[in-house]
Simulated assay, not measured.
Amino acid sequence: MSLPLISPQKAHALVAEGAKLIDIRDVDEYAREHIAVAQCVPLNTLPAGLNAGPGETVIFHCQSGARTSGNADRLALAASPAQAYVVEGGIQGWKQAGLPTVEDTSQPLPLMRQVQITAGLLILLGVVLGYAVSSGFFLLSGFVGAGLVFAGVTGFCGMARLLNMMPWNRRTS
């Protein structure tokens, strides 16, 4: 089952009429930037029902629309029996439409972006040092690449766990 896509402008109008706007991104993504009226209900904690009745409207969004589209069945079940929609383009589409968001740059970057930045820097460092200093530094790039494959296969990312413990990732209120 797929949920109908609606434009950010239409979603904004429905929210003004009382529709529930649900942000399914992780808490750290929400803390960094969100739509002011959106309620954060991360996808992995989404309950079977959002306490929405048959006459109500529930609108889901994520960062770009990929998570909401990929989980449409689960979202439709969570919103049932209410009418449910997905914001086209997610929060990125919302911003491109000129609609406001609340941004808190004192919050850390989302953890997966931190992993991507760190892994990319370590791989680049291994290649540069491998050419400039010693070919043994190429092992650094190989080690990071193997770690990313392991994380993809098992769902366990040691780099994410390590970065999550860093002081800059302590939540501020």
Rank of each mutant, 00 (worst) to 15 (best):
Q116H: 13
A48M: 09
G158F: 11
V127H: 02
R113G: 10
G147T: 01
V41P: 00
T154D: 02
G136P: 00
M165K: 10
F137V: 14
V37L: 11
G120M: 08
G89N: 05
L162M: 14
P81S: 09
F156C: 08
A79G: 13
V27K: 14
K20D: 08
D26T: 15
N169G: 10
L125G: 14
W168Y: 11
L163K: 03
A146P: 01
I91M: 10
A38P: 04
F60M: 12
A11Y: 09
P100Y: 07
M159R: 04
V37S: 14
S134K: 00
F138Y: 07
V27S: 13
E17H: 12
L121T: 12
Q83P: 06
G98K: 14
P47H: 04
M112A: 04
F60A: 02
T154F: 09
C40I: 03
G65W: 00
G18A: 14
E56T: 09
F143K: 02
S135V: 07
W168F: 09
L139M: 10
M112C: 02
R32D: 09
E29F: 03
Y85E: 01
A16V: 09
V87I: 06
G70Y: 06
L129H: 08
F138T: 07
F156D: 12
N51W: 03
P8S: 13
I91G: 09
M166L: 15
A52H: 04
V144G: 06
A84C: 07
V127I: 15
G53E: 14
Q116T: 12
A146K: 02
A146D: 00
V144E: 14
Y131A: 07
G145P: 11
L125S: 15
V153Y: 09
D104S: 06
A38R: 02
K10E: 14
E56F: 03
M166A: 15
